[in-house]
Nucleic acid binder design. Sequence first.
RNA 1: GGACCCAUAGCCAAGUGGCAAGGCAAGGGACUGCAACUCCCUGACCGUUGGUUCAAAUCCGACUGGGUCCUCCA
Length: 445
Amino acid sequence: MRIYNSYTNALETFIPHHQNQVSIYVCGPTVYNYIHIGNARPVIFFDVVRRYFESKGYTVRFASNFTDVDDKIIAKAKEEGVSETAVSNRYIEAFLADLERLGCKTDYWKPRVTECMPSIIAFIADLVEKEFAYVVDGDVFFRVSRIESYGKLSNRKIDELLSGARIDVNEKKESPLDFVLWKRTGEGVRWESPFSVGRPGWHTECVTMIDNLFGEEIDIHGGGMDLLFPHHENEIAQSIACHQHRLARYWMHNGWMNIDGEKMSKSLGNFVLVKDLKVDPKGFRMFLLATHYRGPINYSEEGLEGYHKEWQRLEKSVSALHRALDLQSALDPTALPVLPEIQTALADFDEAMENDFNTANALTALNQLWKIVNQFARQKSDLSGMNQALNAMNRMLSVLGLEVRQTPLTLDEKDLFSRWEAARKNKDFAAADSLRQQLTERNLL
RNA sequence: GGACCCAUAGCCAAGUGGCAAGGCAAGGGACUGCAACUCCCUGACCGUUGGUUCAAAUCCGACUGGGUCCUCCA
């Protein structure tokens, strides 16, 4: 397995810290709004990463947080006259509903900032104690100058950052690069701390959550490319300061979703919400996976529509094969794929995934197999080959999170099929057409 | 102002030194009682321009066009 590590800017062989185990942490959403389809990119991609590792027999420990303390949440709560908790709960629920819709697994660790406050405060206190942070007037800042390797992840030099025209000038900071760990406040949701009554800044939560959940440097830390700087850079700085390790062995960052050639973002207002998608979410999932995760994706309705159709055809093909086997009572989920062309497709699939999760090429392998599935579904005679093709296809689909629902036919449905078959044989086309109509109405053709 | 990324067929998109994957769309053929589904066949001087090399889409330089980061963003 080779993974492009953003920390070293190179493809590296993936070696997990513990054999046959992978620990993954992905920066999750700030829950003040519904997620848009650009936000869905890391969600879907890392779900596939997880699924691939699991399919290879790894035990995957997967965590992704909810940022439920944030200025935007406070603003929203104020605007609506409700509590911050009411706002964040609503959007956490919506987020999980979107995950389901998108075919993502939801059984992973979902720490919330509000539930980690004691450890966040303790962590900041520790940084202050070790003089990696300083308190000014109830605010706490991280002293970036103490971290020699600061800028390594995002390829930035300290003096370049210092000369950057857009860095906020804050009188209290020793250096403009220092970032807020704790903010004293009299407004909104807030906690008691040794520094002041206030709330945490946004770079500390992931570090303490990772420490709480995993207790050590994790294997993979993921998120969107826009988190590279300053968020992940700051996480690393804190981790080095407190734990003397860089938080994660491999850093993975996904590219943007563009719309009309521009980055889709909440601040630009040019987004499409997941819940408003007009196509089958699985089609959207294919659309996303058709591009390598580090490249940009340009959103267009036409492009999406294409994958929507492709997904529907795929669904049809797979269920047709399943049905053909079911009608002959010959389903065998244990049949191992031994036919060379099926093995080739499976090998190509794995090779693509092993190469920095090249899902675009994995889909090409899926296309190879798809053709084979169609051939078998049409011939309906080689039961062994049919089962092999179906099982191989299901393996790929489950890795990509594109499972096709395959429900066994009822006796009634089987009867319809045999009557249709008989009518066609007897050239009773009126009856055949009517039976075909019924099958179509039941979505069985 | 500083740092950086991208440019491959009508569209989407792999490939990152050794004769340019795949999909969609389009055209032709096959299968079918008629359909649908499906199967087979057909497509590229890799943005422009210099250079390095036996060999470049792939490396280096310039240019053009698009985009990103340096501030919240996945």
